[in-house]
């Protein structure tokens, strides 16, 4: 009889410790899964042509949303409204660029930072909420902004702000999102495994024990929210300049659903998972463009199937397979 046998390569375990890596083969083994995607991301756009450049830019920006969603989830705050951060960042840079006439780099930086401050300030009172209650608030926030802008007619009202200056240089337009995305991806993966990140994870598991360990949980949540807001607002701010316009659609459900779906598809809490998820979903949604609004239905179907049937996600699955040897043995 033939049976399939799975053996752990054991490199992962060793590389986590000091007496780690013994040969070039093992170094390569650990380096390749990191280097290849990075190289692909850096080289593909020039190889594929300008249509795909667009797709890659958008993937990176949406990837930032997904990464920041995942960071928020790491402290146990599950957001149903990533569009809130995205929209605030978008409007902030639109405001600086169009209404104050600042040049593009300034409007992006200022838009990101001030947007992040606004988001953090608005979320500060609700960070104490747990479980569904936080999700409910985040679901309400983008809608709230839409209604406020609609009824007060500020920031261009229902029309939005148009005629915002473009970024200008197509290299910058392409490589800034890529670099920010890669930097955030690897930075966050490092952060979450540092002692600081351990505390964040502990807050998600059980915040009362963290409190009784002498840690100000609220301060951590605040810091984390600020990082999350920075990343997401940057995404919105940059997108505003790419589209040269920002409107109420920046608060649309798409921008809440896409990061959420990416994270669940790729594997919550791994950062690499949400990144992989976005690079599957964004190109997919480009192909689905012909179906119009059916796109959102596709997202929700994927989200539904993933959460119910594949709670683990793609990345943890791939990782496990990569670190195992499979072979057939005679029994």
């Amino acid at each position: 009889m033939i049976r399939k046998e799975r053996i752990d390569r054991g490199i992962k375990v060793r590389s986590d410790d000091i007496y780690a890596i013994s040969s070039y083969r093992e170094i390569l083994y650990l380096l390749l899964p990191r280097v290849i995607p990075v190289l692909c991301l850096l080289l593909l756009p020039t190889l594929l042509g300008s249509y795909y450049e667009r797709v890659i830019i958008i993937s990176c920006l949406m990837g930032l949303l997904a990464l920041s969603w995942d960071l928020l989830a790491s402290i146990g705050l599950f957001s149903l409204g990533q569009a809130f951060f995205f929209g605030v960042g978008g409007y902030a840079s639109g405001f600086f660029s169009y209404q104050l006439g600042l040049p593009v780099p300034y409007s992006i930086v200022l838009g990101t930072v001030s947007g992040a401050l606004v988001c953090t300030l608005l979320l500060a009172p609700v960070l104490r909420l747990k479980g569904v209650y936080f999700s409910i608030v985040t679901l309400a926030f983008p809608l709230f902004f839409v209604r406020i802008i609609e009824s007060t007619k500020i920031l261009g009202g229902t029309e939005g702000i148009t005629g915002i200056s473009p970024i200008g240089n197509s290299w910058i337009e392409l490589y800034i999102p890529i670099f920010v995305f890669l930097f955030s991806l690897f930075g966050l993966r490092r952060l979450i495994n540092s002692d600081y990140g351990i505390v964040l994870q502990a807050i998600r598991d059980n915040d009362r024990a963290v409190i009784s360990s002498g840690i100000n949980v609220y301060a951590y949540k605040l810091e984390c929210t600020f990082i999350v807001s920075l990343l997401s607002c940057f995404s919105g701010a940059f997108m505003t300049h790419i589209y040269q316009a920002v409107g109420l659609s920046a608060f649309a459900l798409d921008y809440s659903l896409l990061p959420l779906t990416s994270a669940v598809l790729g594997g919550v809490g791994t950062f690499a998972g949400p990144a992989i998820g976005t690079f599957i979903l964004v190109p997919l949604s480009e192909f689905l463009r012909v179906f119009g609004t059916l796109r959102v239905v596709f997202y929700s179907v994927i989200l539904f199937l993933c959460i119910v049937l594949l709670p683990e996600g793609i990345f943890p699955f791939l990782k496990r397979k990569y670190h195992q040897i499979e072979r057939f043995v005679e029994v």
Partner: peptide, 21 residues
Amino acid sequence: RPFLHLPAYKNLIIPLYSKRV
């Protein structure tokens, strides 16, 4: 109320990371 997702020894990182120590 341990931190279930963490290895046992990492559970102690949290108090060790507090201001007090």
